[in-house]
Write a protein that binds this DNA or RNA. Structure first.
Lengths: 209, 209
DNA sequence: TCATTCAGTAAACATCTGTTTGCTGACTTT
DNA sequence: AAAGTCAGCAAACAGATGTTTACTGAATGA
């Protein structure tokens, strides 16, 4: 029988965190496939061999970062979808939430954007799977309203995917705004709102195209 | 005075092409920041030092690949925009053109998708600049029709950007289809068409939202 | 024809990489 | 208190990396 928290396990978890944090930091200006194992351990201040006590290799660390990065986004989406409000307010809330997420966890968002189509297969697949789950969830939340309007399940799913893709797009757009440049930030937010409005309009007139 | 084509220059151009081709091939399963200079020269069958006769470094080669990759896409977009046809047909033509482009130059498209948010700044910036030019061009082609309908230049530009982003999105979606799987390919095309239709609907009802 | 140019070469450079090995010593269990 | 576990270490490994150097020899220009 093993305790879930002893001094032992706590220390281990601490170094694991340090490795993840160091990795995330280094990944701000390079991509995962060029990240070195020694590079990470050097930042943490630990011997290279210690890395293997926590991860099989770097792509393993990458997959862990994916779950961490998209975990918080997941909670955020749930919250927005839960609020039963009008289109206009929902758009406002969504864009603001994305902006806030980017402000709070820029490195996580950058990591996702970079590795979504990056050179490391397992990481790419982990991101794709997670984003698919997002789209499913959004589709589920749309179904009660759209199905009675005559929407097919497939079309609802397509719409949901569009919202998810747009969210990722908006997040990366915020990311490219130079720091402390609220003007550009407002421009990005404005663009995002208008694009969401356009999608909403399209959705409203879908059945009478 | 130097001739623009001697046996000399022709050979040089030939090696340059070989380097670009080798790079592009290697970049199908890795990203630019992890690509090695020696790796490229090895494939070409040339000494490592020869690389420097053509490119300052790998990101220089990357920038050259950006221009090459987006050059053909540019011509393609022009062609679609030039045809003055209805929404429905335009959507059909656009999706088919993107599909064809991906079939013809998968490596180029993959490269763009991968490096758009990749770890090499100059390449990222080159892609962003080129996509911006795309959006400008699309906006210009929309202006004659939309301006009389009361659209502002800013809103036209936002719409154009949406189309460009969607095109890139569709291209990468085609890319993720396993080879020789026409079923999945049709599904992606269908999704793309419906999303474009949705945007069209939104556009038509923009001023009476 | 002869001097020049320059794409490509071979070799050496210092430096970095991932991974394996056997070991230590603090924590944990009995 | 004794036995066992196991996170982290130091060292060594073979091999790869980017870059510089002085060079060769074929295409070029006068």
């Amino acid at each position: 029988m093993s305790h879930t928290s002893g001094v032992r396990q706590a220390q281990k978890e601490k170094t694991r965190r340090a490795l993840l944090d160091a990795g995330l930091r280094l990944l701000e200006d390079q991509s995962l496939s060029s990240l070195g194992l020694r590079e990470v351990t050097r930042v943490v201040g630990v011997a290279p061999a210690a890395f293997y006590r926590h991860f099989r290799d770097l792509s393993d660390l990458g997959v862990a970062l994916v779950e961490e990065s998209l975990g918080s986004l997941h909670a955020l989406i749930r919250a927005i979808l839960a609020d039963q409000i009008g289109d206009q307010e929902r758009i406002e809330a969504t864009v603001e939430a994305v902006a806030e997420q980017v402000r709070r966890y820029p490195a996580h968002i950058r990591f996702i954007a970079r590795e979504r189509h990056g050179g490391v297969r397992p990481v790419r697949e982990a991101i794709a799977a997670e984003l698919d789950r997002f789209a499913d969830e959004v589709a589920d939340s749309f179904a009660p309203q759209l199905t009675p309007e005559g929407w097919s399940a497939e079309d609802i799913r397509i719409l949901a995917q569009m919202y998810v893709d747009h969210m990722v797009m908006t997040a990366t757009a915020f990311l490219e705004v130079p720091p402390d440049c609220p003007e550009e930030e407002h421009r990005v937010a404005d663009t995002a709102r208008k694009q969401l409005l356009l999608i909403s309009l399209g959705r409203r007139h879908w059945r009478d195209g």
